[in-house]
Protein backbone atom coordinates (compact mmCIF):
# COMPACT_ATOMS: atom_id res chain seq x y z
CA UNK A 1 0.00 0.00 0.00
CA UNK A 2 1.31 3.44 -0.91
CA UNK A 3 2.18 5.85 1.88
CA UNK A 4 0.50 9.22 1.99
CA UNK A 5 3.47 11.09 0.55
CA UNK A 6 3.62 8.77 -2.48
CA UNK A 7 -0.10 9.09 -3.03
CA UNK A 8 0.01 12.86 -2.75
CA UNK A 9 3.14 13.27 -4.84
CA UNK A 10 1.28 11.61 -7.71
CA UNK A 11 -1.19 14.46 -7.63
CA UNK A 12 1.34 17.25 -8.14
CA UNK A 13 0.74 17.57 -11.88
CA UNK A 14 -3.03 17.30 -11.58
CA UNK A 15 -3.02 19.91 -8.83
CA UNK A 16 -0.97 22.37 -10.85
CA UNK A 17 -2.95 21.76 -14.04
CA UNK A 18 -6.23 22.28 -12.17
CA UNK A 19 -7.68 18.79 -12.39
CA UNK A 20 -8.44 18.12 -8.73
CA UNK A 21 -11.82 18.47 -7.11
CA UNK A 22 -12.32 20.95 -4.28
CA UNK A 23 -11.95 18.33 -1.55
CA UNK A 24 -8.88 16.87 -3.25
CA UNK A 25 -7.33 20.34 -3.44
CA UNK A 26 -7.94 20.85 0.28
CA UNK A 27 -6.30 17.55 1.14
CA UNK A 28 -3.39 18.19 -1.16
CA UNK A 29 -2.77 21.70 0.12
CA UNK A 30 -2.86 20.44 3.66
CA UNK A 31 -0.21 17.92 2.68
CA UNK A 32 1.86 20.69 1.09
CA UNK A 33 2.11 22.50 4.40
CA UNK A 34 3.94 19.49 5.78
CA UNK A 35 5.90 18.30 2.75
CA UNK A 36 8.66 20.54 1.38
CA UNK A 37 9.43 17.92 -1.25
CA UNK A 38 5.97 18.07 -2.82
CA UNK A 39 5.96 21.84 -2.46
CA UNK A 40 9.16 22.05 -4.44
CA UNK A 41 7.71 19.79 -7.13
CA UNK A 42 4.65 22.01 -7.31
CA UNK A 43 6.81 25.10 -7.77
CA UNK A 44 8.78 23.46 -10.55
CA UNK A 45 5.71 22.19 -12.33
CA UNK A 46 4.04 25.57 -12.03
CA UNK A 47 6.81 27.05 -14.13
CA UNK A 48 5.74 24.72 -16.92
CA UNK A 49 2.17 25.85 -16.47
CA UNK A 50 3.19 29.48 -16.78
CA UNK A 51 3.95 28.94 -20.44
CA UNK A 52 0.75 27.17 -21.48
CA UNK A 53 -1.25 30.39 -22.02
CA UNK A 54 1.35 31.50 -24.53
CA UNK A 55 0.30 28.66 -26.81
CA UNK A 56 -3.05 30.34 -27.49
CA UNK A 57 -3.58 31.28 -31.11
CA UNK A 58 -3.21 35.04 -31.62
CA UNK A 59 -6.55 36.70 -32.12
CA UNK A 60 -7.31 40.36 -32.64
CA UNK A 61 -9.49 41.80 -29.85
CA UNK A 62 -12.84 43.27 -30.92
CA UNK A 63 -12.90 46.86 -32.07
CA UNK A 64 -13.51 49.22 -29.20
CA UNK A 65 -12.83 46.62 -26.51
CA UNK A 66 -10.25 48.78 -24.78
CA UNK A 67 -12.61 51.74 -24.44
CA UNK A 68 -15.44 49.56 -23.22
CA UNK A 69 -13.36 47.76 -20.65
CA UNK A 70 -11.43 50.71 -19.28
CA UNK A 71 -14.63 52.74 -19.30
CA UNK A 72 -16.45 50.14 -17.25
CA UNK A 73 -13.55 49.49 -14.91
CA UNK A 74 -12.72 53.12 -14.24
CA UNK A 75 -16.37 54.20 -14.10
CA UNK A 76 -18.13 51.34 -12.38
CA UNK A 77 -21.34 53.25 -11.78
CA UNK A 78 -24.05 51.59 -13.74
CA UNK A 79 -25.42 53.69 -16.51
CA UNK A 80 -28.80 53.41 -18.07
CA UNK A 81 -27.10 52.04 -21.13
CA UNK A 82 -25.68 49.14 -19.14
CA UNK A 83 -29.12 48.40 -17.79
CA UNK A 84 -30.27 48.24 -21.38
CA UNK A 85 -27.70 45.65 -22.24
CA UNK A 86 -28.66 43.49 -19.28
CA UNK A 87 -32.28 43.53 -20.25
CA UNK A 88 -31.45 42.71 -23.82
CA UNK A 89 -29.27 39.84 -22.61
CA UNK A 90 -32.19 38.34 -20.84
CA UNK A 91 -34.30 38.79 -23.91
CA UNK A 92 -31.74 36.93 -25.96
CA UNK A 93 -31.60 34.15 -23.39
CA UNK A 94 -35.26 33.65 -23.79
CA UNK A 95 -35.58 33.81 -27.51
CA UNK A 96 -32.44 32.13 -28.69
CA UNK A 97 -31.25 28.84 -27.35
CA UNK A 98 -28.09 28.90 -29.41
CA UNK A 99 -24.86 30.24 -28.03
CA UNK A 100 -25.45 33.81 -28.99
CA UNK A 101 -22.98 35.98 -27.13
CA UNK A 102 -24.42 36.60 -23.73
CA UNK A 103 -23.95 40.30 -24.09
CA UNK A 104 -25.21 42.65 -26.71
CA UNK A 105 -22.92 45.54 -25.97
CA UNK A 106 -20.53 46.06 -23.15
CA UNK A 107 -19.69 43.16 -20.89
CA UNK A 108 -21.32 43.17 -17.53
CA UNK A 109 -19.47 45.14 -14.93
CA UNK A 110 -19.64 42.62 -12.13
CA UNK A 111 -22.10 39.82 -12.18
CA UNK A 112 -24.14 38.07 -14.76
CA UNK A 113 -27.84 37.87 -14.43
CA UNK A 114 -29.24 34.63 -15.62
CA UNK A 115 -32.87 35.43 -14.99
CA UNK A 116 -34.97 34.85 -18.05
CA UNK A 117 -37.98 36.59 -19.24
CA UNK A 118 -40.72 34.11 -19.17
CA UNK A 119 -43.57 36.16 -20.42
CA UNK A 120 -43.41 37.05 -24.04
CA UNK A 121 -47.11 36.42 -24.10
CA UNK A 122 -47.52 38.84 -21.25
CA UNK A 123 -47.49 41.41 -24.03
CA UNK A 124 -47.82 44.72 -22.33
CA UNK A 125 -45.04 44.42 -19.81
CA UNK A 126 -42.65 43.00 -22.33
CA UNK A 127 -43.44 45.64 -24.90
CA UNK A 128 -43.04 48.46 -22.44
CA UNK A 129 -39.71 47.07 -21.36
CA UNK A 130 -38.60 46.61 -24.94
CA UNK A 131 -39.44 50.19 -25.76
CA UNK A 132 -37.97 51.38 -22.49
CA UNK A 133 -34.83 49.46 -23.27
CA UNK A 134 -34.47 51.22 -26.56
CA UNK A 135 -35.20 54.69 -25.30
CA UNK A 136 -32.94 54.23 -22.31
CA UNK A 137 -30.21 53.19 -24.73
CA UNK A 138 -30.67 56.39 -26.65
CA UNK A 139 -30.58 58.41 -23.43
CA UNK A 140 -27.32 56.69 -22.57
CA UNK A 141 -25.87 57.53 -25.93
CA UNK A 142 -26.98 61.13 -25.65
CA UNK A 143 -25.49 61.38 -22.20
CA UNK A 144 -22.20 60.03 -23.43
CA UNK A 145 -22.19 62.40 -26.36
CA UNK A 146 -22.86 65.36 -24.11
CA UNK A 147 -20.05 64.36 -21.81
CA UNK A 148 -17.77 63.99 -24.76
CA UNK A 149 -18.76 67.39 -26.04
CA UNK A 150 -18.05 68.99 -22.68
CA UNK A 151 -14.55 67.68 -22.36
CA UNK A 152 -13.48 67.52 -25.94
CA UNK A 153 -10.56 69.58 -26.99
CA UNK A 154 -10.99 68.54 -30.53
CA UNK A 155 -11.51 70.66 -33.55
CA UNK A 156 -14.56 72.80 -34.01
CA UNK A 157 -15.62 70.57 -36.83
CA UNK A 158 -15.64 67.50 -34.61
CA UNK A 159 -17.55 69.42 -31.98
CA UNK A 160 -20.19 70.36 -34.48
CA UNK A 161 -20.44 66.78 -35.64
CA UNK A 162 -21.00 65.60 -32.07
CA UNK A 163 -23.73 68.17 -31.55
CA UNK A 164 -25.43 67.14 -34.75
CA UNK A 165 -25.28 63.52 -33.65
CA UNK A 166 -26.76 64.44 -30.28
CA UNK A 167 -29.60 66.25 -31.98
CA UNK A 168 -30.22 63.28 -34.23
CA UNK A 169 -30.35 60.92 -31.28
CA UNK A 170 -32.65 63.26 -29.42
CA UNK A 171 -34.97 63.23 -32.41
CA UNK A 172 -34.84 59.46 -32.44
CA UNK A 173 -35.50 59.40 -28.72
CA UNK A 174 -38.50 61.68 -29.11
CA UNK A 175 -39.95 59.50 -31.82
CA UNK A 176 -39.19 56.34 -29.89
CA UNK A 177 -41.03 57.66 -26.88
CA UNK A 178 -44.23 58.15 -28.81
CA UNK A 179 -45.49 54.59 -28.74
CA UNK A 180 -44.68 54.15 -25.07
CA UNK A 181 -46.46 57.36 -24.21
CA UNK A 182 -49.48 56.04 -25.99
CA UNK A 183 -49.54 52.81 -24.07
CA UNK A 184 -52.15 52.26 -21.42
CA UNK A 185 -52.69 49.38 -19.10
CA UNK A 186 -54.84 46.81 -20.73
CA UNK A 187 -53.98 47.96 -24.18
CA UNK A 188 -53.34 45.14 -26.61
CA UNK A 189 -49.61 44.98 -27.22
CA UNK A 190 -47.52 42.19 -28.63
CA UNK A 191 -43.80 41.68 -28.48
CA UNK A 192 -42.48 39.55 -31.30
CA UNK A 193 -39.54 37.24 -30.96
CA UNK A 194 -36.15 38.88 -30.96
CA UNK A 195 -34.08 37.45 -33.77
CA UNK A 196 -30.34 37.45 -33.96
CA UNK A 197 -28.77 39.25 -36.89
CA UNK A 198 -25.85 37.20 -38.09
CA UNK A 199 -22.81 38.36 -40.05
CA UNK A 200 -23.05 37.38 -43.70
CA UNK A 201 -19.37 36.54 -44.01
CA UNK A 202 -16.54 35.48 -41.78
CA UNK A 203 -14.69 38.78 -42.05
CA UNK A 204 -17.56 40.61 -40.37
CA UNK A 205 -17.62 40.69 -36.58
CA UNK A 206 -20.78 42.76 -36.25
CA UNK A 207 -23.77 41.30 -34.44
CA UNK A 208 -27.26 42.50 -33.88
CA UNK A 209 -30.76 41.90 -32.66
CA UNK A 210 -34.09 42.72 -34.30
CA UNK A 211 -37.37 42.84 -32.39
CA UNK A 212 -40.91 43.50 -33.55
CA UNK A 213 -43.27 45.38 -31.25
CA UNK A 214 -46.95 45.71 -32.11
CA UNK A 215 -49.21 48.14 -30.30
CA UNK A 216 -52.12 50.39 -31.09
CA UNK A 217 -49.77 52.76 -32.88
CA UNK A 218 -48.76 50.11 -35.35
CA UNK A 219 -45.95 47.64 -35.96
CA UNK A 220 -42.46 48.70 -34.98
CA UNK A 221 -39.08 47.27 -35.77
CA UNK A 222 -36.33 47.75 -33.18
CA UNK A 223 -32.84 46.97 -34.43
CA UNK A 224 -29.71 47.07 -32.30
CA UNK A 225 -26.26 46.23 -33.60
CA UNK A 226 -22.75 46.25 -32.24
CA UNK A 227 -19.21 45.84 -33.45
CA UNK A 228 -20.26 47.61 -36.60
CA UNK A 229 -17.52 48.58 -39.05
CA UNK A 230 -16.33 52.15 -39.12
CA UNK A 231 -18.11 54.31 -41.68
CA UNK A 232 -16.25 56.41 -44.23
CA UNK A 233 -17.28 59.76 -45.67
CA UNK A 234 -21.08 59.85 -46.07
CA UNK A 235 -21.64 56.18 -45.49
CA UNK A 236 -24.54 55.07 -43.33
CA UNK A 237 -26.00 51.83 -42.06
CA UNK A 238 -29.31 51.02 -43.68
CA UNK A 239 -31.92 48.54 -42.53
CA UNK A 240 -33.97 46.63 -45.08
CA UNK A 241 -37.12 44.59 -44.81
CA UNK A 242 -37.06 42.02 -47.56
CA UNK A 243 -39.84 39.95 -49.13
CA UNK A 244 -38.48 37.82 -51.92
CA UNK A 245 -36.91 40.25 -54.36
CA UNK A 246 -38.67 43.23 -52.85
CA UNK A 247 -36.51 45.32 -50.55
CA UNK A 248 -38.08 48.00 -48.40
CA UNK A 249 -35.96 50.77 -46.92
CA UNK A 250 -36.51 50.62 -43.16
CA UNK A 251 -34.34 53.58 -42.29
CA UNK A 252 -30.74 54.50 -41.76
CA UNK A 253 -28.63 54.97 -38.69
CA UNK A 254 -25.09 55.82 -37.72
CA UNK A 255 -23.00 54.14 -35.05
CA UNK A 256 -20.80 55.29 -32.25
CA UNK A 257 -18.05 53.02 -30.97
CA UNK A 258 -19.48 50.45 -33.33
CA UNK A 259 -22.88 50.48 -31.63
CA UNK A 260 -26.03 51.69 -33.34
CA UNK A 261 -29.79 51.32 -33.15
CA UNK A 262 -32.88 52.04 -35.18
CA UNK A 263 -36.60 52.26 -34.47
CA UNK A 264 -38.92 52.01 -37.45
CA UNK A 265 -42.68 51.92 -37.72
CA UNK A 266 -44.07 50.15 -40.77
CA UNK A 267 -47.01 48.39 -42.30
CA UNK A 268 -46.82 44.60 -41.93
CA UNK A 269 -46.14 42.95 -45.26
CA UNK A 270 -45.06 39.35 -44.74
CA UNK A 271 -41.41 40.24 -44.93
CA UNK A 272 -39.10 37.25 -44.69
CA UNK A 273 -35.76 38.87 -43.92
CA UNK A 274 -34.33 41.84 -42.09
CA UNK A 275 -30.88 42.98 -43.17
CA UNK A 276 -28.36 45.74 -42.57
CA UNK A 277 -26.09 47.13 -45.26
CA UNK A 278 -23.38 49.76 -45.38
CA UNK A 279 -24.57 52.29 -47.93
CA UNK A 280 -22.50 55.02 -49.63
CA UNK A 281 -25.01 57.57 -48.26
CA UNK A 282 -28.29 57.61 -46.38
CA UNK A 283 -30.48 58.43 -49.36
CA UNK A 284 -30.77 55.23 -51.37
CA UNK A 285 -34.12 53.57 -51.91
CA UNK A 286 -32.55 50.28 -52.90
CA UNK A 287 -29.44 48.54 -51.53
CA UNK A 288 -26.23 49.64 -53.22
CA UNK A 289 -23.67 48.83 -50.56
CA UNK A 290 -22.31 45.82 -48.76
CA UNK A 291 -24.57 43.49 -46.81
CA UNK A 292 -23.20 42.92 -43.29
CA UNK A 293 -25.98 41.48 -41.12
CA UNK A 294 -29.12 39.54 -41.90
CA UNK A 295 -31.71 37.38 -40.20
CA UNK A 296 -34.73 35.44 -41.39
CA UNK A 297 -38.03 36.66 -39.98
CA UNK A 298 -40.06 33.57 -40.74
CA UNK A 299 -43.03 33.07 -38.52
CA UNK A 300 -43.02 36.65 -37.37
CA UNK A 301 -46.00 38.83 -37.92
CA UNK A 302 -44.33 41.26 -40.24
Amino acid sequence: MKDKHTTMSELVELYVLGGLSVSEIEDFEEHLTQCPECLEQVEQMRQVMDFLPMASEPITPPVGMKNRILGNVLNPEKTEAEAVHHSIDDQIDQTDQTDYPANSGTPRSRTRHYGRWRAVSAGLAAAVIAIGVYTAGLRGEIKELKEQTAIAEETEQQLQASKAETARLQDQLASALKPSQGLKLGEAVKLGEAVKLDPVSQDIVAQGLATIVIDSQGTHLVVQAEKLPELQDNEAFQVWLIKGEEKKNAGTFLARDGIGALYYTFEPGNYDTVAITVEPDAYGEQPRGKLILAAPMEGSSI
Binding site: P61, P62, R68, V73, A102, P107
Partner: peptide, 11 residues
Amino acid sequence: DTMTAEEVVQE
Protein backbone atom coordinates in the same frame (compact mmCIF):
# COMPACT_ATOMS: atom_id res chain seq x y z
CA ASP B 1 -16.53 33.15 -27.74
CA THR B 2 -15.51 36.71 -28.49
CA MET B 3 -17.98 38.45 -26.20
CA THR B 4 -17.37 36.10 -23.30
CA ALA B 5 -13.63 36.52 -23.78
CA GLU B 6 -14.13 40.26 -23.54
CA GLU B 7 -16.11 39.76 -20.35
CA VAL B 8 -13.23 37.74 -18.97
CA VAL B 9 -10.71 40.45 -19.78
CA GLN B 10 -12.95 43.09 -18.24
CA GLU B 11 -13.37 41.09 -15.06
